[in-house]
């Protein structure tokens, strides 16, 4: 009963995450199209070029989140049963780790793009701290934080997949000896 409740709450969170993913993807595509139209209208104006680049990287960062949500749904369902970590869980965790690595890379690229785009705000007269104020605004720090959290998630998923592999192997040995 307790496990089933945990499983259901995890699945509800995954569903909410999926709904948010859909909304974000639609919003991102809409803005990407708007920026591309702007770029076609006036190629000399840098803002549209910057927007197209940033929106494209965000879209690339969103893509690996879909298989992660799919595998999270499956693992959350497994929490509700009495089955432990098996071969399939290990496989799912490894795939989630790989996708999380892709997301981390894309977030890191996004941070780099954002910092690059904000370089024009900093003049030579400013000292280091003033330059930091203009570069590291709310959005850059938020995406930087997400990159770091995603990197931790990647490492933890890698550890968990190794644990699951070990557990599956022990289970197989037990099955053989019985």
């Amino acid at each position: 009963m307790h496990n089933r409740l945990l499983s259901r709450s995890l699945r509800a969170l995954v569903l909410l995450g999926a709904a948010m993913w859909l909304y974000l993807a639609a919003d991102n595509v809409y803005h990407l199209v708007l920026a591309a139209r702007g770029l076609a209208w006036d190629a000399s104006y840098g803002t549209f070029g910057r927007s197209v680049r940033a929106e494209a990287v965000i879209l690339l960062a969103l893509l690996p989140a879909l298989p992660i949500l799919w595998d999270m749904w499956a693992i959350a369902g497994q929490c509700g049963t009495r089955r432990g970590f098996d071969d399939r869980t290990a496989l799912r965790l490894r795939r989630m780790g790989r996708c999380a690595l892709a997301t981390t890379t894309m977030f890191a690229l996004l941070v780099w793009v954002m910092l690059y785009d904000r370089a024009y705000r900093v003049s030579e007269q400013m000292n280091v701290l003033q330059g930091l104020y203009y570069r590291l605004d709310f959005y850059v720090v938020a995406i930087l934080g997400l990159t770091l959290v995603s990197a931790i998630g990647t490492t933890v998923l890698f550890l968990l997949s190794r644990l699951a592999e070990k557990a599956a192997l022990e289970q197989a040995v037990n099955d053989l000896t019985i």
Binding site: L144, G145, I152, T155, V156
Partner: peptide, 16 residues
């Protein structure tokens, strides 16, 4: 590695 990432997150949170 995990603890180094935690330190970076701490610094980012302090700035935020």
């Amino acid at each position: 590695l995990l603890r180094a990432l935690l330190v970076l997150i701490g610094l980012a949170c302090l700035w935020q």
